[in-house]
C-alpha cells in the first residue's frame, strides 16, 4: 500500500516539477500513470437468525428485569423488624403456663378504680386548660414585644422576625429522678452495643 502511494505521489511530483526542458522526443513524455486501489470487495452476507430464538432471548431479558423490579418492590414494602413486636414462638407455646392465677377483683375495688380514673381525667383536663392559657399568655407577651419593636424601628422588627437557624439541631436532656452523682464511675465493664444493623 505504502509503496503504491509512493509511486502515485512520485508520478504527480514529476508532473508538477517538470520544467520546460529540452525534449528528445517531439511529443510529450508519457510518464507513469497509476490509479489508487479502491480495496473494495463485495459485502458479507448477514447471518440470518431464527426469529423464534430472537424472541426467546428478548423474553428472557424482559423476565429478568421484571423479576428484579418485583424483588425491589418487595423489599421496599418490607419494614425493619422490631424485636419487641414479634412474639417469639417459644413464648406463645408456653402461654398457658405463664398466665397468672389472681383472685377476681371485688366490685369495691373496681368502683374505687373507676372513681380514681375519673378524678385523674378531670385533673389532666384542668392541667391541659392551664397549659393552653399559659401558651396564650406567652404568645401575647411576644406579640406585644414585637409590636413595640415595630413602633420603634421597622428594620429591627424585620430582623427580629427572621427564623433562628442556630436553633435547629436541638438537643434536650430531660429531668431525671435523682440528680447525677459527681465523679461517679460505673462499676460494670465496657458498654457494648449488640443491636442488629438492618
Amino acid at each position: 500500500m505504502s509503496i503504491n502511494n509512493l509511486v502515485t505521489n512520485l508520478s504527480r511530483l514529476t508532473i508538477k516539477s517538470l520544467p520546460i526542458t529540452r525534449w528528445v522526443h517531439s511529443s510529450n513524455p508519457l510518464l507513469f500513470k497509476t490509479t489508487p486501489i479502491l480495496l473494495g470487495e463485495p459485502l458479507k452476507k448477514k447471518k440470518r437468525m431464527d426469529p423464534a430464538i430472537v424472541r426467546a432471548r428478548e423474553e428472557r431479558k424482559k423476565k429478568k428485569l421484571e423479576k428484579a423490579i418485583r424483588k425491589l418492590e418487595k423489599h421496599a414494602r418490607k419494614l425493619k423488624p422490631i424485636g419487641e413486636c414479634e412474639i417469639p414462638f417459644d413464648l406463645l407455646d408456653t402461654l398457658n403456663e405463664r398466665k397468672r392465677s389472681l383472685p377476681a377483683l371485688s366490685s369495691e375495688i373496681l368502683d374505687k378504680r373507676a372513681l380514681l380514673e375519673k378524678r385523674w381525667a378531670n385533673y389532666k383536663r384542668e392541667q391541659r386548660l392551664i397549659d393552653v392559657q399559659m401558651l396564650d399568655r406567652i404568645q401575647y407577651s411576644q406579640q406585644r414585644a414585637l409590636d413595640e419593636l415595630r413602633k420603634e424601628s421597622e428594620e429591627l422588627y424585620q430582623e427580629a422576625i427572621q427564623p433562628d437557624l442556630l436553633l435547629m439541631p436541638y438537643k434536650v436532656e430531660g429531668p431525671v429522678e435523682t440528680p447525677p452523682i459527681e465523679n461517679y464511675k460505673s462499676p460494670d465493664g465496657d458498654y457494648k452495643d449488640v443491636s442488629k444493623v438492618w
Binding site: S141, R144, L149, L156, A160, P163
Partner: peptide, 30 residues
C-alpha cells in the same frame, strides 16, 4: 440587631465560660 445586642450583653456579664443559647431572633417580653 437586637439579637446581637442581647448576645453581647449576656456575654459581657456572664463571661466566656458560661454557655447559653438564646431562643429565636424575636424578643419574648417587653
Amino acid at each position: 440587631t437586637l439579637r446581637q445586642t442581647a448576645e453581647r450583653v449576656l456575654k459581657s456579664i456572664v463571661g466566656d465560660e458560661l454557655k447559653a443559647q438564646i431562643y429565636s431572633n424575636a424578643p419574648i417580653g417587653f
